[in-house]
């Protein structure tokens, strides 16, 4: 597992308040169905920005960005590469 994914899982475990284990949930599982709320999403954004030292632009602050671990990873990678 890449470092990016491992870090995302750690942030989700700390901030996501999921009803499933963030370390083992599938990369393509629907995180909203796993209990991710819009309020918890904000804490996840802050956690990701802190962990990766990035700033997620406003256009990425949409629901689909946080739907799955894979989607979060794509957003983080695009900002790390920017």
């Amino acid at each position: 597992m890449s470092d990016t994914l491992a870090t995302i899982r750690t942030v989700l475990a700390e901030q996501g308040r999921l009803s499933v284990d963030a370390q083992t949930v599938s990369e393509t599982a629907d995180l909203y169905a796993a209990g991710l709320t819009s309020h918890a999403t904000i804490n996840v954004v802050l956690g990701l920005e802190n962990a990766f030292d990035i700033e997620l632009p406003d256009e990425l602050l949409v629901k689909s960005t946080f739907e799955t671990i894979a989607a979060i990873s794509a957003a983080v990678e695009s900002e790390l590469g920017a």
Binding site: I42, V45, L46, D58, L61
Partner: peptide
């Protein structure tokens, strides 16, 4: 309260 939380990550550029 909800708006304050959103404002903490929104840049508005």
């Amino acid at each position: 309260t909800n708006t304050a939380a959103l404002a903490s990550v929104y840049r508005g550029d």
